[in-house]
């Protein structure tokens, strides 16, 4: 549904996005992760036809964005970071103004706007958008992104201004939209947010895609290289004796707990050994790299 090929954007001689190759399938909830300044928003601006790439191309539903931005805009919805509105107009008037660009007649507009305002809990709000709180603006932003019932939704830092209740409702909405077959592209620098809703992620750093896949896949890809070593965490009720096995490379002991570095997964053999020695095994697992640590390491690069 979304594809970029060697997508590049240069600002004042500096590459904000550098040869990005990305693919997001239909109906996916894709998390676009990266620290501030990584190039996420620039990528979204190119994907939504608001700026032209310096090099490469991007396609949404098979349409090359730079060649036909209007056609792309007709099928997508976009919630910008720090979304802004016309302060002298109500939420309803703002939505009506945007809806007119889709050739919707007055009746259809009215019905759609009423539906969306109810969805984001802004129905019955008569104050002007200039008097809205940031959270209300964010919710109105979500409504304007959905005004044309898009098949692809781009959300840039969607929970930035929402309260916990708003965040929960946003997550439910994203799940529901994905359930309807829409592709949702969520850009965020907050891992926990992406983790909560996204099935696949792409990690961007310094304009380049560092990894793409499920969160676990990305975490494994990015984990500090330790060769093919398997890290096994062992904990027994009793004091842990010396463990010996030809596959073991090293053991980090700490009382009745140890982290065993081995050439292969020797958990079965290890369990048998400990059991034969009369020990009670409390824990025996492969240690996965900590996802937060892995991402933080990339963020710090």
């Amino acid at each position: 549904m979304i594809r970029t090929e060697n997508l590049t954007k240069v600002y004042n001689g500096k590459k904000a996005v550098d040869g990005l190759d990305l693919e997001v399938g239909e109906g996916e909830i894709f998390g676009f992760l990266g620290p501030n300044g990584a190039g996420k928003s620039t990528t979204i601006l190119m994907l939504t036809g608001m700026i032209e790439p310096t090099g490469g191309r991007c396609l949404v539903d098979g349409i090359e964005v730079a060649k036909d931005p209007l056609k792309v805009k007709e099928i997508i919805g976009y919630l910008p970071e720090d979304v802004g509105f016309y302060g002298n107009m109500t939420g309803e008037q703002n939505l009506d103004y945007f809806a007119r660009f889709y050739g919707m007649d007055a009746k259809k507009r009215k019905a759609r706007i009423a539906e969306l305002l109810e969805l984001v809990h802004l129905d019955g709000v008569t104050q002007k958008a200039g008097e809205y709180s940031r959270g209300m603006k964010q919710r109105l932003g979500l409504a304007q992104a959905l005004i044309n019932d898009p098949i692809v939704l781009f959300l840039d830092e969607p929970t930035a201004n929402l309260d916990p209740e708003g965040v929960r409702e946003y997550r439910d909405l994203v799940e529901r939209l994905a359930g309807e077959g829409k592709t949702v592209f969520v850009s965020s620098h907050i891992l926990s947010e992406v983790r909560a809703v996204c099935r696949t992620v792409g990690l961007l750093a310094n304009g380049k895609l560092v990894a793409q896949g499920t969160l676990d896949e990305v975490a494994r890809t990015l984990a500090p290289s330790d060769g093919d070593v398997v890290r096994i965490v062992v904990e027994t009720r009793e004091h842990l004796p010396d463990i010996e096995d030809p596959e073991i490379l090293a053991v980090e002991r700490n009382g009745n707990r140890a982290v065993v570095r081995a050439k292969t997964d020797i958990r079965d053999r290890l369990t048998e050994t400990l059991f034969s020695e009369g020990l009670h095994v409390r824990e025996m697992r492969i240690e996965e790299p900590d996802i937060e640590d892995v991402f933080m390491a990339v963020y710090r690069r």
Partner: peptide, 17 residues
């Protein structure tokens, strides 16, 4: 004013040149 309020960005996300 549209630049300051960021409404221009929102407007440009809809089908208009």
């Amino acid at each position: 004013k549209e630049k300051e309020s960021r409404s221009l960005k929102t407007l440009l996300s809809h089908p208009i040149y």
